[in-house]
């Protein structure tokens, strides 16, 4: 694996390897000294064109637990103000010999552009790009689901996939990079996925995705769900007529107290409730649901560090920059 750009092109072998490595990494978090020397002397740059404190500190913690040097680079340049170009920023980081660049960008495809442009030699990790993908989020979600699923099936997590798991993902699929990354990864790992959303918040073309689509959360729950993932919905979407009001959205597609109670009456005693955060309590998820024993919200945050450690470790622990350059020379000569 040279970069981690998307889950769409992540094979089952690599996916399971990341999850298995994350299991090993999670043990580090339980130790008194939460640090491994694996990436000592390596430089990881967190290049954020879009604010995301949660994701940045998760990557920062992951890199630091592997003893890498971490540089946080909050780049200017929004869709409105151009600022420094991606090319110039990339070449600056290349001149500083960055080994890995963790990039968060408001523009879909920016990480792929960075990886394929020839502007920089570093490994590129997509930390969320526009409405395209957020692969480490999907990996940490899968990690969380795999632990739950293995416990239920009394299997070891390591080496396992998610065959047979029923996942429902509800919310603003149209604008969600989390939904996209989850759909591809969960398919690769053998889970079955149902997307639940108002028709306005599903992309044209969703019918080609490897999943079911429903407009009705209650009937989806009634069919049986093992993991219920709620996506963040921006209340401002109502201004663009994606839905009439926040209250109507919450009633029809929010995971409220009534639906929380319905899990028991439906006999879904082991169903977990997931959310990538940050949550809009009272909109897509009620406080009772978010704080219930079924909620995995904090476990997801914890697992995020392990999964990101695994990704950085697998991308960087192999060859050093110099060795990669040597290999390039050999292969191109």
């Amino acid at each position: 694996m040279r970069h981690l750009l998307s889950t769409e092109d992540l094979g089952r072998g690599d996916a399971v390897r990341i999850l298995d490595t994350a299991e090993e990494m999670s043990a580090v978090g339980d130790r008194e000294v939460k640090k491994l020397p694996a990436l000592r002397g390596r430089t990881v740059v967190n290049l954020f064109f879009e604010d995301s404190t949660r994701t940045r500190i998760s990557f920062e913690a992951a890199a630091k637990r592997l003893s890498a040097d971490v540089i946080n680079f909050a780049a200017k340049g929004s869709s409105v103000s151009k600022g420094e170009s991606l090319k110039d920023t990339a070449q600056t980081l290349e001149a500083m010999s960055a080994d890995a660049v963790v990039i968060r960008h408001w523009a879909s495809g920016a990480p792929q552009r960075l990886a394929n442009s020839g502007w920089i030699d570093a490994a590129v990790v997509n930390a969320g790009d526009g409405t395209h993908e957020h692969p480490t989020q999907a990996l940490l979600d899968a990690f969380t689901m795999r632990r739950h699923w293995s416990r239920l099936n009394r299997n070891a997590s390591t080496g396992a996939d998610l065959t047979g798991l029923r996942v429902a993902i509800a919310g603003d699929v149209l604008h969600s990079r989390v939904a996209r990354s989850n759909v591809w990864l969960l398919r690769t790992l053998g889970a079955s996925v149902t997307l639940v959303a108002p028709p306005t918040l599903l992309p044209v073309g969703v019918e080609h995705w490897p999943c079911e689509v429903s407009y009705d959360l209650d009937s989806t729950l009634a069919k049986g769900v093992d993991a219920m993932m709620m996506l963040r919905v921006q209340a401002e979407r109502m201004n663009a007529s994606f839905f009439p009001s926040a209250r109507e959205y919450a009633r029809r597609w929010g995971f409220d107290d009534r639906r929380l109670a319905s899990l028991d009456s439906l006999g879904l005693k082991d169903t977990i409730i997931m959310h990538p955060g940050p949550m809009n309590r009272g909109l897509e998820i009620s406080s009772a649901a978010a704080d219930s024993p079924r909620s995995t919200v904090l476990a997801q945050v914890r697992n995020g560090v392990s999964v990101r450690m695994a990704a950085l470790y697998l991308l960087l622990s192999g060859d050093t920059r110099e060795e990669r350059n040597e290999l390039t020379k050999v292969s191109s000569s």
């Binding site: 769409e8 879909s108 495809g109 790009d129 526009g130 409405t131 395209h132 993908e133 990079r177 996209r180 992309p203 044209v204 073309g205 969703v206 080609h208 995705w209």
Partner: peptide, 18 residues
């Protein structure tokens, strides 16, 4: 709008030009 709206824009997360 960034590209044709359809199955590719859905995957790429680029705003569709229907």
């Amino acid at each position: 709008a960034q590209m044709n709206e359809g199955k590719v824009s859905a995957v790429l997360g680029l705003t569709g030009w229907p």
